[in-house]
Design a binder for these strands. Structure first.
Lengths: 121, 121
DNA sequence: ATACTATTTCTACATTTGTAGAGCAAATAT
DNA sequence: ATATTTGCTCTACAAATGTAGAAATAGTAT
């Protein structure tokens, strides 16, 4: 089961905070903030989908993500690469390299990263 | 307005074919194929959303995408980069370079592409 | 002309999603 | 102890989505 948009937005907040109480989540929302019950509903659905869990701290719950941002992101990326590049990661990389309008500095920086990766091989 | 999942799947077919008649679209679907009317509904909604149009060819319609795959893809990518990398394309590239498990050959290939890009600057 | 075929459009309906009120339980302030 | 606050669960409801039947349309084969 995937996250809906509203759920993903809340996930972003949770990932940023790593863990948080209801109150903090609400505070983290930009205006116009949703009703507390709206967030509660989203949290519950996210728990059902196994993306969020909590620990009871005193009488309140501290929520936290059970799926790392990195892992979630990777899954999303793989989905896109599958759909748009026939599952070829390098084909995606090519497209990205030539179409993303990176600056000279950025390109150099990435080349350095690639060199480092290559060293490890 | 964004495309829903079912709509996006149909878009992929349309992008691949560039243009197609109803019959061809249906054929392109993997089993189990949806009902023809389901595809018709999706097409109509996609027309409303301005992602698809058609030309009348004789008595039948030849559908085609009005948004290129490239453009659509870029928009999706930008959304992800915005949400996951605080809008930093190079930060995304770093992550991708180090986390994507590209092979040595692929990394070299990409480095070459980057070099070519740099030459243009 | 008549029947058959291939859409198209309308309508329908179950799910999922976005949003939030009502009611309730528990902690806190007075 | 009583009122107030916090936040959880239940319930609700509109909008979006996935899916498709029924009816209308318009060529095509006979």
């Amino acid at each position: 089961m995937e996250l809906s948009n509203a759920e993903e937005q809340l996930m972003q907040i949770l990932w940023k905070k790593e863990k948080a109480f209801m109150k903090e989540l609400l505070e983290a929302y930009p205006e116009p903030k949703p009703a507390l019950t709206t967030v509660a509903t989203l949290l519950k659905r996210m728990q059902d989908k196994k993306f969020v869990d909590y620990i009871q701290v005193g009488r309140s719950r501290e929520y936290f993500p059970t799926v790392s941002k990195k892992k979630y992101f990777s899954k999303q990326m793989n989905g896109m690469i599958r759909n748009f590049f026939n599952n070829s990661t390098s084909q995606f990389a090519s497209f990205f390299t030539t179409e993303s309008n990176l600056s000279e500095e950025e390109l150099k920086e990435i080349r350095n990263l690639i060199d480092e990766q290559l060293k490890k091989k």
